[in-house]
Design a protein around this nucleic acid. Sequence first.
DNA 1: TAGTAATATATCACTCTGTTATATTATGTG
DNA 2: CACATAATATAACAGAGTGATATATTACTA
Lengths: 185, 185
Amino acid sequence: MGDASGYEIKKLLEGPFSHIHEASFGAIYPALARLQDEGLVTCEERSQEKRPDKKVYALTQRGRFDLIKELTIVPGPDRVRSDFLVLMLYAHLLPPAHVANVIEKRLDILGALLTELENENGAPVPAGEESSAEFVLGYGKAVLKAAHDYIKDNRHLVEGAALVAGGTRDDILAKEERPAGVAAE
Amino acid sequence: MGDASGYEIKKLLEGPFSHIHEASFGAIYPALARLQDEGLVTCEERSQEKRPDKKVYALTQRGRFDLIKELTIVPGPDRVRSDFLVLMLYAHLLPPAHVANVIEKRLDILGALLTELENENGAPVPAGEESSAEFVLGYGKAVLKAAHDYIKDNRHLVEGAALVAGGTRDDILAKEERPAGVAAE
DNA sequence: TAGTAATATATCACTCTGTTATATTATGTG
DNA sequence: CACATAATATAACAGAGTGATATATTACTA
């Protein structure tokens, strides 16, 4: 998607494409160094007026070919790691006020991500890549919106859980070891 | 969610809860050993008739308390790693037939996951946890369905991309180094 | 003058993934 | 009947990635 420094790649993966793939500096910088060693990218140091110098990397033709080769696979399922859903799975063990607060914050996060994607229309995407980028950004919007709407419509399932089950956090802690149907054999 | 062996935990994370959190054996077995050292779980070896022996782990009360403590945070955004979306982002570089095949396979994968979640209604979830589990499974369904529908309705954006841009894989490879608006300066 | 923040690169301990190894039982298959 | 494959079950390890920390420059602000 054009030449970039490691820092710029990180910013891109934190912004509009955060729902695709994330990577840390500890992955990006060593990867760029390795790609340069292998002749798949070139590196050019560029000094800037109002900022620290940066190293701008560009794909070579061999790098471009390698990229295409790597993409000629049928990808498996997406790998997801959601601390939010893990927490929701144990909502019945947690103080209802905490669950409600987490839900509120989650709706905020999803709303903010959606706004960010909406403002990305007409973003600086290189020629010939518009519809690919449009597909990916649209995918992000669709999935984020579905998550937002689902939480809004079904939050009662977890916010009322502890009350319905009669088991607040303190109740749980007051129970004896291995309370329900979990025999030691 | 009840006592389990490492193998059973892995199966659970591959099945109905694969959209929440994944983990490999290399994460699970060392984690169980560590939790046992710390007194947060107990371990009981159980011999089976028609299968190899297994080690069944159970939370202690201290483990239960620790779990609740760990969940008293406000979780950040979900971490996603989608090889599929990375591929889609570069659809314009790939042979259209390959992109079409990947789309077909993806719709199959999403359809299969949805069916699996649909059949999970009335699953073996411990008492008091039903609505938490229902929320999480419903979330998975909603997001998976949104992804499936979006791909079905917008696949033309990536399947026609190479044709519209006039750039098949061979065209790209025939171009000179740094073809478009990517000056070395 | 000091503190915070953004930009920018680099390194490293620790964690996790993906793979391989090992063992048991069941299920084909030629 | 031997042989391969597959499912169940645990373990270990090389290599990759995360999260944290270090370092440096410039800008803002108290």
